[in-house]
Amino acid sequence: MDRRHALKVLGAAAALPSLAPTDGDKAPDPAATQGPAWTGPAGTPSDPNLVTPRVWWPRKLLDGELVTLAALCDTIIPADGHSPSASAVGVPGYIDEWASAPYDDNRESLVKLRGGLAWLNTESERRFGRPFARLGESERNQIADDVCYEPKAKPEFKGPAQFFDMVRDLTATGFYTTHEGMKDLKYIGNVPLQRWDGPPPEVLKHLGLL
């Protein structure tokens, strides 16, 4: 992101309102025209500082759970020629933040997440005699294949499949919202433009609109 350019535009804008009026009647006393005192955000959950955000709740997952979670995240989004793996860009930390959030849905999901991570290790021990994080790729995939799509999962894997899907959704959010993930998708935007030209000709051509 060309943040420096963005800040320059913002700086130019901030300078504009100070232009003194050069016509019309005489300006009133500036003290009378400033409006009420500004004290900024209260810093409460419904009135947080939007410009410098922070997470205000403690994270709940234990180190061991995070190790299992990282292995699962990387099974879902491994490194390839385009971008790094999910754990390399902090996805387990995001999922921990999400599952620890003080909202009803998240509280329920924490139970589902913890139960799922425990199931993953139990299943892994049962099949291979080792916890999930210590399995090789093909062993991990053997388990993942059984739980990766709920509609096609065997009855005994329906529950774990729901857990897997939740983690896949979260891993995708965590991964594709990072710079690395956005670059992988070739997202272009969040840069200030002097003018808007619409889609380039190659896009219109691709769509049969040119």
């Binding site: 099974t75 390839d80 385009h82 799509y149 096609k152 995708a172 594709y176 992988d184």
Partner: peptide, 13 residues
């Protein structure tokens, strides 16, 4: 069909 792994990344693109 429940893609994960490298295929998930391809499908995402």
């Amino acid at each position: 069909n429940g893609a994960y792994g490298k295929r998930f990344k391809e499908e995402a693109r």
